[in-house]
Design a protein around this nucleic acid. Sequence first.
DNA 1: ATGGTTGTTTAACAA
Length: 259
Amino acid sequence: MKIASFNINGIKARLPALLTWLSETTPDVALLQEIKSVDAAFPRTEIEDLGYRVETHGQKGFNGVAILSRLPLEDVVRGLPGDPDDPQARWIEAVVVGRDAVRVCGLYLPNGNPAPGPKFDYKLAWMARLKDRATALLEAEETAVMAGDYNIIPQAEDAARPEAWTEDALFRPEARDAFRRIQNLGFTDALRATSAAPETYTFWDYQAGAWDRNDGIRIDHALLTPRAADRLLDCGIDAEIRGREKPSDHVPIWVELDL
DNA sequence: ATGGTTGTTTAACAA
């Protein structure tokens, strides 16, 4: 089973590019972030025509996440548990019913800039809730994947110019520590840990020719529970699509599990 | 230090 994650930066602007990528790479599951759409306006028909079920958790203007799946989905949950009053649509999870079941969690972690400040506080509070959800997945011994735009540069090697990010919310020690604490609960960072992990980034800014200069960062991640990590066959980053017409500033990541 | 770009939505805000 191939599970991909892609911050598309607006479904309205990215639909042709998304359909092309889906047709070319045929993931069984695609977790989308930054759909920037309300549920009713999401172009589900065009995606369903490619054989995907569509579950969205959107809002007006920004944020918004979705799950596309060629396999049946059960137990869809919208919103990260822990704050029913959180107005920002950044989490959706569901159980994919394949040869064996796997829980997929798609997340769009808050950016947090400028830091320090209320947006950075919100980022850290959201990460505390993520840690609680992650702990519950481990305690239930689930086969689960938490993938998406984490807005975290875990280590200096994950940036072409780490010195440019020292004061940024994506690289500040408090945010990296929070990410490390979650991973150290027992998750595998698939795109770093495996021999198949590619040596490339997942985000290149639109500004200042970042793609042409390969001035990127690795901020999209797939964390696997031990039961999922045991099934990991391969993983990758579809970096080349960053060079296409009207690209997102992120590129897709994917893991292949023996499920 | 500033500005550089894109998307949603139409004046900023978010990234």
